[in-house]
Design a protein around this nucleic acid. Structure first.
Lengths: 139, 139
DNA sequence: GTGTTTGCAAAGTGTTTGCAATTTA
DNA sequence: TAAATTGCAAACACTTTGCAAACAC
């Protein structure tokens, strides 16, 4: 698995600064929860819950704002697998996902497990923003 | 493009019957809207609107029920591209999608435009239900 | 100080549900 | 007539918004 999320913390600060986002208490605390660990696929509600557990006072609205701001800045990647719920992936490198349909759990596909995908021919005038591959697994 | 949706109408009736779904006025009318034409990617609200335009009295709840029942029976395939909105694809064959991110429009990728995807190695005990590929396009 | 960010509660979106009335076999 | 289906309105889950108070620079 590509450990792109183990960025030095200074990078987060830099990226916030570069993007003109002030390093507020809330943003820094959420960034720590998100990036200090392994790669994560986390929803806004989950992150909010985790913040509260860690005695970080932050509102759900701020968690949403922060996740979106981080996504715009390139610190996160947003993934939607099922209707009505977004996950945010701390691994922003090119990679794909396993979705365990029974549990709803989402996991990165290690590069060794997934060969390269041949790029499709695309319509005139269009350009590829990104290719999302979700391998849906049972059992 | 694989025209799997041009199934004879009798097939729809058969599949409903086989599944123990009564061919009610609403189900038949919605099936006609869905399957009489080209391949479609349609949301519940869109289909409901279309039904009303065609003077088919049907509630939005019934449209939702019907779309899900058709999906269970294998007449449709459900696709979620962005948070909070499901599309139903009348093409249930193995194929992938272009998503035009500006408009939100979803389109089948013709087989000629997309090479085969190498199946990934999957975790022990799991089996692949389906692989969703969404090529996100700009402009 | 000035502009940014936050928290709250309210509004919004798409979807599902409970249940009485209706329809189908 | 028994079971399935429908329509309505209310409930739902998740997300976004408006705005005054708090904060960062």
């Amino acid at each position: 698995m590509n450990n792109m999320c183990q960025r030095p913390f200074s990078t987060v600060l830099d990226q916030l600064r570069t993007a003109g986002l002030r390093p507020t208490r809330q943003r820094l605390a959420l960034a720590k929860l998100l990036f200090n660990d392994r790669d994560r696929h986390i929803s806004a509600e989950q992150l909010h819950g985790e913040a509260l557990e860690n005695n970080i006072r932050v509102s759900l609205a701020t968690v949403y704002n922060t996740l979106h701001q981080f996504t715009e800045v390139g610190l996160l990647r947003e993934i939607t697998v099922d209707s009505g719920r977004s996950y945010f992936d701390t691994n922003t490198s090119d990679h794909h996902h396993f979705l365990f349909v029974d549990s709803g759990r989402l996991e990165d596909i290690p590069d060794e497990m997934m060969g390269a995908i041949a790029l499709p021919t695309i319509p005139d005038g269009a350009s590829i923003e990104r290719i999302d591959v979700v391998v849906r697994l049972r059992r």
